[in-house]
Computed example of a mutant assay.
Amino acid sequence: MSAHTPRKIILDCDPGHDDAVAIILAGGNPAIELLGITTIGGNQTLEKVTHNARAVATVARLDTVVYPGCDRPLVRPLTVAADVHGETGLDGASLPEPRVPLGQKHGVDFIIDTIMASDAGEITLVPTGPLTNIALAVRKEPRIVEKVREVVLMGGGYHTGNRTAWAEFNVYVDPEAAHIVFNAGWPVTMVGLDLTHQALATREVERSIAELGTDCSQLVVDLCGFFREAYRENQGFDDPPVHDPCTIAYLIDPECVATRRAPIDVELRGSLTTGMTVVDFRSPAGPECSTQVATTLDHGRFWQLVTEAIAAVEDKPEL
């Protein structure tokens, strides 16, 4: 595959303020070919996040389709993050009526059918919410494991959690699904909290985005404003970490995100540690290790990519 060939991805998300920025970045950079968006119950209910995905894609002028996936985890009740994302999942922003179409296939079937119709190594899966859709796709059609180029996911962490002391929200919501995905044998890059907590939307970043003076830039500024207050109140951050677009930035420019190869597994039974991603850094990982973790972010380069993608929306025809 040529270095200049766009990376074909399926974005599996639960918008969510940071998912919204991931959608804009994926749609606004020529290094990414967005094949479709699937949604998953997570930050809010499936109905709400699906509406949000379609509305954000409308603002970003994306020629894509949104396919609703699973509305709950594999075996547990759904936990949402209204304390961080509000009752709509995108509180703080004024969203247009969605003009991006709703797919008729279930999200899991769209994932399977698209991968199975592709060449091996052609498609990358980018989940930025709970991993239920991806896990069900693996269970329903195991052959996708050999065909997917890699899985680059936002979730987990090797030092800290946010939903509990040890568990990051996406993995905590459906740890059984995460266990399936991390142990499937395909290449997995975990872009966890240790990396995404470096992706802070500072006041300077907000000003740079606001200066673009577009509908899309205003949406991102509004999202960051609500996110800032939610993170300050709930987790003590002065500036909010914008987690999910770090996955897309890694695919666009791997130099933007440093990684380290290491075995990763998911705790399912600990009374205090369920949902913890256990990363084994004790020794260099051997060639059989198919997982790696993101460690260090180039903050300036990351926000440059995001700002350029927001600006590029104006060059696209309105939907």
Results as ranks from 00 to 15, higher is better:
residue 246 C to I: 08
residue 245 P to Y: 09
residue 305 L to Y: 06
residue 283 S to R: 13
residue 195 L to C: 13
residue 67 Y to N: 04
residue 138 V to S: 01
residue 89 G to F: 01
residue 264 I to G: 12
residue 57 A to Q: 05
residue 284 P to R: 11
residue 224 C to V: 14
residue 92 G to C: 07
residue 208 S to T: 10
residue 290 S to N: 13
residue 113 D to K: 02
residue 35 L to M: 12
residue 97 E to C: 11
residue 160 T to K: 14
residue 277 T to L: 05
residue 68 P to N: 05
residue 274 T to R: 15
residue 211 E to Q: 15
residue 2 S to N: 14
residue 5 T to G: 03
residue 214 T to G: 15
residue 166 W to V: 13
residue 150 E to Y: 04
residue 85 H to R: 01
residue 304 Q to I: 00
residue 274 T to M: 12
residue 47 E to A: 15
residue 113 D to G: 05
residue 235 Q to M: 14
residue 117 A to Y: 01
residue 27 G to V: 02
residue 252 I to S: 08
residue 213 G to H: 09
residue 218 Q to F: 09
residue 222 D to N: 15
residue 168 E to Q: 11
residue 196 T to A: 11
residue 26 A to H: 04
residue 219 L to H: 04
residue 278 V to F: 02
residue 295 T to D: 13
residue 140 K to G: 00
residue 199 A to D: 08
residue 20 A to L: 04
residue 86 G to P: 00
residue 40 I to M: 12
residue 247 T to S: 14
residue 151 V to N: 05
residue 132 T to A: 01
residue 271 S to W: 10
residue 150 E to H: 05
residue 83 D to V: 00
residue 188 V to M: 02
residue 215 D to G: 15
residue 159 H to E: 14
residue 154 M to W: 10
residue 16 G to P: 07
residue 107 G to Q: 00
residue 19 D to C: 15
residue 17 H to V: 13
residue 59 V to T: 13
residue 109 D to Y: 00
residue 193 L to W: 07
residue 139 R to M: 06
residue 284 P to K: 08
residue 205 V to Q: 05
residue 232 R to G: 15
residue 300 G to R: 11
residue 296 T to C: 07
residue 208 S to R: 15
residue 164 T to H: 06
residue 282 R to K: 07
residue 215 D to H: 12
residue 122 E to Q: 15
residue 184 A to H: 07
residue 187 P to N: 12
residue 209 I to Y: 07
residue 228 R to P: 03
residue 5 T to R: 14
residue 281 F to I: 01
residue 1 M to C: 07
residue 231 Y to D: 10
residue 89 G to A: 10
residue 153 L to Q: 11
residue 125 L to M: 12
residue 45 T to G: 15
residue 236 G to V: 04
residue 253 D to R: 04
residue 94 S to D: 15
residue 18 D to C: 07
residue 309 A to T: 11
residue 27 G to K: 07
residue 157 G to F: 00
residue 84 V to F: 08
residue 136 L to H: 01
residue 32 I to E: 06
residue 230 A to P: 05
residue 294 A to F: 08
residue 58 T to H: 09
residue 82 A to W: 00
residue 76 R to C: 03
residue 212 L to F: 13
residue 38 T to V: 09
residue 225 G to Y: 01
residue 306 V to Y: 06
residue 20 A to M: 06
residue 91 D to Y: 05
residue 318 E to M: 04
residue 109 D to Q: 13
residue 274 T to C: 10
residue 156 G to K: 02
residue 161 G to Q: 02
residue 36 G to T: 09
residue 302 F to L: 02
residue 111 I to M: 02
residue 53 A to E: 11
residue 165 A to H: 10
residue 152 V to F: 03
residue 107 G to F: 01
residue 212 L to K: 13
residue 272 L to P: 00
residue 5 T to H: 10
residue 187 P to C: 06
residue 244 D to Y: 05
residue 131 L to T: 00
residue 94 S to P: 01
residue 53 A to V: 01
residue 8 K to Y: 02
residue 240 P to A: 15
residue 306 V to S: 12
residue 69 G to Y: 02
residue 96 P to A: 04
